[in-house]
Simulated assay, not measured.
Amino acid sequence: MTTITGYKFANLSSEEVEAMFEIKLQETRVYREAKEEGRQEALEKGREQAKLELIPRFLDYGISIEEVAQLLDLTIEQVEKIRLVTEQESLTSTL
């Protein structure tokens, strides 16, 4: 609805559109659902980023690649890829 009203009434502010239809755009179901979906996506991205940051730490503690994959619910290939990238970054930073 926000997109439609924004397109159809591009010359009006959101406050003017809200007054015209006697609604708050933030209170519409579509707005709430989109906002919640955005929160869920951000939360999931944060979780994935945390997993990726934990891989080198776990490996530094001597945990095997297989165990790291199992602990973080990743594939062995994903863990190996991050291990290789981390090694490359540490080699580049020491040069």
Results as ranks from 00 to 15, higher is better:
residue 59 L to E: 02
residue 47 R to Y: 07
residue 43 L to V: 11
residue 82 I to E: 07
residue 75 T to R: 05
residue 94 T to P: 00
residue 26 Q to K: 15
residue 78 Q to A: 13
residue 48 E to C: 04
residue 42 A to Q: 05
residue 27 E to R: 11
residue 27 E to D: 15
residue 93 S to D: 12
residue 94 T to M: 09
residue 23 I to H: 02
residue 46 G to H: 01
residue 16 E to L: 06
residue 27 E to S: 14
residue 66 E to N: 04
residue 91 L to W: 08
residue 28 T to W: 00
residue 91 L to G: 04
residue 65 I to Q: 05
residue 73 D to L: 08
residue 38 G to R: 02
residue 44 E to G: 05
residue 12 L to I: 07
residue 12 L to C: 12
residue 44 E to R: 12
residue 17 V to N: 10
residue 9 F to G: 00
residue 54 L to A: 11
residue 30 V to E: 14
residue 84 L to C: 08
residue 33 E to H: 08
residue 44 E to Y: 11
residue 7 Y to C: 10
residue 20 M to N: 07
residue 28 T to N: 02
residue 72 L to K: 06
residue 55 I to Q: 00
residue 13 S to W: 01
residue 44 E to D: 12
residue 88 Q to T: 13
residue 11 N to C: 08
residue 15 E to F: 06
residue 63 I to L: 01
residue 95 L to P: 09
residue 95 L to K: 12
residue 87 E to S: 10
residue 93 S to K: 14
residue 78 Q to T: 11
residue 54 L to H: 02
residue 68 V to A: 00
residue 74 L to G: 00
residue 58 F to T: 02
residue 52 L to N: 09
residue 32 R to Q: 15
residue 92 T to E: 15
residue 23 I to L: 14
residue 38 G to N: 00
residue 75 T to N: 04
residue 60 D to V: 02
residue 45 K to T: 11
residue 66 E to P: 01
residue 73 D to M: 07
residue 49 Q to H: 07
residue 29 R to N: 10
residue 7 Y to A: 09
residue 79 V to A: 00
residue 3 T to F: 12
residue 86 T to R: 08
residue 37 E to R: 10
residue 95 L to I: 13
residue 71 L to I: 12
residue 7 Y to N: 09
residue 37 E to Q: 12
residue 66 E to R: 04
residue 36 E to M: 13
residue 60 D to C: 03
residue 26 Q to I: 15
residue 62 G to F: 03
residue 1 M to D: 04
residue 5 T to S: 10
residue 15 E to G: 03
residue 40 Q to G: 02
residue 36 E to T: 13
residue 9 F to Q: 01
residue 93 S to F: 08
residue 75 T to W: 03
residue 13 S to L: 07
residue 39 R to W: 08
residue 72 L to G: 03
residue 45 K to N: 13
residue 67 E to K: 14
residue 78 Q to M: 08
residue 87 E to G: 02
residue 66 E to Q: 06
residue 11 N to Q: 15
residue 94 T to S: 14
residue 76 I to K: 12
residue 90 S to G: 01
residue 35 K to T: 13
residue 94 T to W: 04
residue 75 T to A: 05
residue 92 T to F: 10
residue 33 E to D: 14
residue 68 V to H: 00
residue 51 K to C: 11
residue 80 E to K: 15
residue 87 E to P: 04
residue 6 G to Y: 02
residue 80 E to L: 15
residue 63 I to C: 03
residue 66 E to S: 05
residue 31 Y to E: 03
residue 63 I to H: 02
residue 80 E to G: 04
residue 19 A to M: 10
residue 77 E to N: 12
residue 67 E to N: 09
residue 24 K to Q: 12
residue 64 S to V: 08
residue 45 K to L: 13
residue 48 E to Y: 04
residue 72 L to W: 02
residue 3 T to N: 15
residue 26 Q to H: 10
residue 12 L to K: 14
residue 80 E to F: 09
residue 67 E to V: 00
residue 81 K to G: 01
residue 60 D to Y: 01
residue 59 L to A: 03
residue 45 K to D: 14
residue 78 Q to S: 10
residue 22 E to Q: 13
residue 32 R to N: 11
residue 44 E to A: 11
residue 81 K to A: 13
residue 23 I to Q: 05
residue 94 T to G: 02
residue 15 E to C: 03
residue 52 L to M: 07
residue 54 L to N: 07
residue 90 S to F: 05
residue 62 G to M: 03
residue 78 Q to D: 14
residue 30 V to M: 14
residue 74 L to N: 01
